[in-house]
């Protein structure tokens, strides 16, 4: 079961049966099939069980703070647009702690792939509600069950006119792979929210539950219409999976760097010009 992109000599810390194993394999296979060079890939992660993923894939990695992968990833991409940049984390990380960055990264539209492991529970801190936990879900903290409305990342992303909005279920592996590949090929910000079970702390939203509560978008579905995408995004029981919306617009790197996409480390300021500007003072 070893994959060439597996990092050597590591000790995987996930529980047996964890949905993260599927996502790890998914990312490795998609990167390989797209023939991307590991040296030019950076995975930026926050903190959480899902954020351990880049410690297991042999690419560049920046493992940062809880909730803060997106601003790091945005800056990495603009500093060197030739890199393939992934921001990865869980539902608590990306939609809770990092909620503000989620909104504003969509507005900026950097050309990055945003992978969110969505298991509707906090795994690392052992079983509290996450922003996507369903109402009524009981935990050691939410003892009467979750009372807040679950966060819907898909409708939020659409409301902000994200250029690529998708949801998949890791239990539906081949479908997930097609969608994730498309996300990498999209030029601009691409959200892929991945349903995944936490086999230890979420006994409600299991592999079975995700299977029963999702359906693949019909082949006739047109993903270029924001209004119909929004309608789909609001559907529950079952929830649609697939690419809900796709549209192209200029990226953060286009705005910041224009035609010059050279890595910033290859550049230096012209001191003569700086001297001239100073001399005007």
């Amino acid at each position: 079961m070893k994959h060439p992109l597996d990092r050597a000599n590591i000790n995987n810390a996930w529980c047996p049966g964890c949905g993260n194993f599927g996502i790890l394999k998914l990312i490795e296979e998609v990167l390989t099939e797209l023939e991307l060079d590991a040296k030019n890939i950076v995975i930026v992660a926050g903190i959480g069980q899902s954020s351990k993923t880049p410690y297991y894939i042999d690419t560049n990695m920046f493992s940062g703070l809880h909730g803060r992968a997106l601003p790091v990833a945005t800056a990495i991409k603009v500093s060197n647009p030739s890199l393939t940049v992934i921001a990865e984390g869980g539902d608590g990380d990306m939609y809770g702690e990092g909620g503000n960055h989620f909104m504003h990264t969509i507005r900026r539209n950097p050309d990055i792939v945003h992978i969110v492991h969505n298991n509707m529970v906090y795994g690392l801190t052992q079983g509290q509600a996450s922003p996507t936990s369903q109402k009524g879900f009981k935990t050691p903290v939410q003892v009467r069950g979750v009372e807040s409305e679950p966060f819907n990342p898909i409708s939020v992303a659409l409301a902000l006119r994200a250029g690529f909005v998708a949801r998949v279920n890791i239990g539906n592996y081949e479908h997930a792979k097609i969608v994730l590949k498309e996300a990498f090929l999209h030029k601009g910000y691409a959200l892929v929210d991945i349903f995944q079970p936490c086999v230890v702390f979420n006994k409600v939203n299991t592999y079975r539950w995700f299977k029963d509560n999702t359906y693949e978008l019909e082949s006739t579905y047109k993903n270029n219409n924001l209004a119909s995408a929004m309608e789909k995004a609001l559907e529950v029981e079952p929830m649609p999976i697939g690419i809900l919306y796709k549209s192209l617009s200029s990226t953060f790197e286009d705005h910041q760097r224009g035609e010059n996409k050279k890595p910033l480390f290859e550049m230096k300021h012209d001191l003569k010009k700086l001297q001239t500007l100073f001399d005007q003072y």
Binding site: V42, V44, F62, G64, L65, R68, L70, P71, V72, A73, T74, A75, I76, K77, V78, S79, N80, L83, N100, H101, H104, P263, L264, F265, E266
Partner: peptide, 15 residues
């Protein structure tokens, strides 16, 4: 928070 995290992303990637 985003400001300084971006700064770190920038340096990491050579800015």
């Amino acid at each position: 928070i985003a400001s300084l995290n971006m700064v770190l992303g920038g340096w990491y990637s050579g800015a």
